[in-house]
């Protein structure tokens, strides 16, 4: 599903953001990417949805080499990938419904299909009663759930989450982890970047640890 071969990304400075990473992530895996801030977690995720190009090495996503992807092909890669951010990245001027519908509309889905899927996705995250609200009228946890609904509404093969609980308290974080686990149970490969160790202690899964851009440990967990 996701394969990295000797991937290095440097921004021209002395030290590279990501150094010589070789990682294989099979389909349906749930992986924590941990490390202190500046360890290269965000760069790692950004390369997977082609927001950054590696300086060296090759990346394969779903058997497609995305290091040589043409920019006109990037949208089609991103349609297979849902991304969730620490700052939610919601459109404040749009309603909850419109925010989620945006992802489907951008893919050119038909209107009746959009409304059905948006409703389902919002129901999935428990916010179907908030359709017409604006994001700022909602709590942080609710906003993140909308962002997750937007990422999942397109049935992505891969879900990337960059510090999704960075701005949220533990109770809300646990709700959100449930959503990720549910998506994973349906077959979506989940990569979750976090510096919060309590998460993988609570929900043990494979953990990839980065330090100064290098892979230092890759622990498989033995959850059932």
């Amino acid at each position: 599903m996701i394969q990295l071969f000797n991937v290095t990304k440097s921004y021209g400075g002395e030290s590279a953001a990501v150094k010589d990473l070789t990682i294989q992530i099979p389909k349906g895996d749930f992986v924590y990417v941990t490390g202190a801030s500046g360890a290269g977690k965000t760069t790692f995720l950004r390369m997977l949805y082609a927001a950054e190009k590696p300086t060296k090495g090759q990346i394969l996503v779903n058997n497609q080499n995305i290091t040589r992807i043409r920019s006109s092909q990037i949208p089609y890669l991103r349609r297979k990938i849902g991304v969730v951010f620490q700052d939610f990245k919601l459109l404040q001027s749009r309603t909850v419904y419109e925010n989620v519908a945006f992802a489907l509309e951008a893919q050119g889905k038909k209107r009746y299909e959009v409304s059905k899927k948006v409703y389902q996705a919002l129901k999935e995250v428990g916010l179907e009663h908030r359709l017409q609200r604006k994001p700022l009228e909602l709590s942080g946890g609710e906003q993140q759930r909308i962002a997750i609904a937007r990422a999942l509404v397109v049935d992505p093969l891969i879900l990337l989450a960059d510090e999704p609980s960075g701005n949220l308290d533990m109770e809300v974080t646990l709700d959100i982890m449930e959503l990720f686990k549910k998506a994973n149970a349906r077959g979506t490969t989940v990569l979750l970047a976090t510096h919060d160790h309590s998460l993988h202690q609570r929900f043990p899964r494979r953990v990839i640890t980065l330090e100064k851009g290098k892979l230092i440990t890759d622990q498989q967990s033995h959850h059932s």
């Binding site: 949208p75 890669l77 991103r78 349609r79 991304v83 990245k89 945006f102 992802a103 951008a106 893919q107």
Partner: peptide, 13 residues
């Protein structure tokens, strides 16, 4: 923001 998010969710140019 809107332009960025559109590109993120796979809208074509």
């Amino acid at each position: 923001d809107e332009l960025e998010i559109m590109a993120l969710v796979g809208a074509t140019m």
